[in-house]
Design a binder for these strands. Structure first.
Length: 275
DNA sequence: CACTCTACCTGTGCGC
DNA sequence: TGCGCACAGGTAGAGT
């Protein structure tokens, strides 16, 4: 389940790895599953992409944004969201298309950029301006300032868990890091954002930043037997019934806004939650 | 504005 | 062993 740290890890490996994607030119496009471009008309994709050269790679929330230089048309952006199970990686062009391969871009030097996604949730866009795809998202959760975060919190009257998951509030947090951040902040997931005291808002901001920074440094999360992008060890996500690593109380699991939500009932006191 | 539900998908793991 | 089914979750969109 790629969230901000996992997406950042993909950006870094494609940009800073050897070989780097930056500088490579698209020679041809294999539209293995055209639906990946939905709702764009897939017929138009190859003619837009062929001849374009990868110039830069960035991350906006959970989106990967590839800036391309295209002969005769200037800049173009290829934008990818991995959603639940998408993976993006460089392979030798001769590598076989696999069962879950959805898109392959044939590049210079016998390389190919592959997008594999068993669940078909992941999506790819082409745009002259990435804002047409990512526009409206909140500030990046890795870099948002305390002042802006606190002001945004006060502007809503919602439970903290669904608020953190809302990409229009802050961008980049998913179910794993929402639960981990609330645990580190010592805040119950049903705490109402509008009633947060200044020190609680500070704790939450600090927790989000430190959790995400540690997870980025670790190359993403390592969730026992489920998900293994990197080596970040979770405290609550997926640990229902297991002892809290701080106090030993069994971790609780509830549903909040249709989402599995994990927390320590001792370390994360109900506070100002309603009901 | 806040919420809930549904749809989109398929691999996994459970109970029987 | 095998079957059926709940479950996992990011996001959009519709409905309450």
């Amino acid at each position: 389940m790629p969230e901000l740290p996992e997406v950042e890890s993909v950006v870094r490996s494609l940009r800073d790895g050897s070989p780097s994607l930056v500088g490579l030119r698209v020679r041809s496009v294999d539209m293995v599953w055209p639906g990946v471009f939905s709702p764009l008309l897939p017929d138009l994709v190859p003619s837009h992409l062929e001849g374009c050269r990868f110039a830069a790679i960035a991350r906006l929330g959970k989106y990967l944004v590839f800036a391309l230089d295209c002969p005769g048309r200037g800049s173009l952006f290829l934008i990818v969201h991995l959603r639940m199970t998408g993976r993006l990686f460089l392979v030798p062009e001769s590598a076989a298309i696999e069962r879950h391969t959805r898109l392959a871009l044939m590049l210079d030097h016998g390389l190919a950029l592959r997008f594999d996604d068993p669940r078909k949730f992941g999506r790819v866009w082409l745009a002259d301006d990435p804002e047409t795809v990512t526009g409206g998202m909140g500030p990046d959760s890795l870099t948002v300032s305390l002042e802006e975060f606190a002001a945004r919190l006060a502007g809503h009257r919602r439970h903290l868990k669904p608020l953190l998951l809302d990409q229009y509030f802050v961008a980049g947090i998913g179910n794993i890091y929402a639960d981990e951040s609330l645990f580190r902040a010592g805040l119950h997931p049903l705490t109402n954002s509008a009633g947060l005291k200044p020190d609680e808002a500070l704790r939450l901001h600090t927790a989000i930043r430190s959790v995400l920074e540690e997870a980025v440094a670790a190359g993403g999360a390592n969730i026992d037997g489920v998900f293994k992008a990197g080596s970040f060890i979770v405290n609550v996500y997926g640990r229902a019934g297991a002892p809290c690593r701080v106090c030993g109380t069994p971790i609780s699991k509830i549903r909040v806004g249709q989402r599995g939500t994990h927390f320590c009932p001792h370390c994360q006191l109900p506070g100002n939650m309603e009901a």
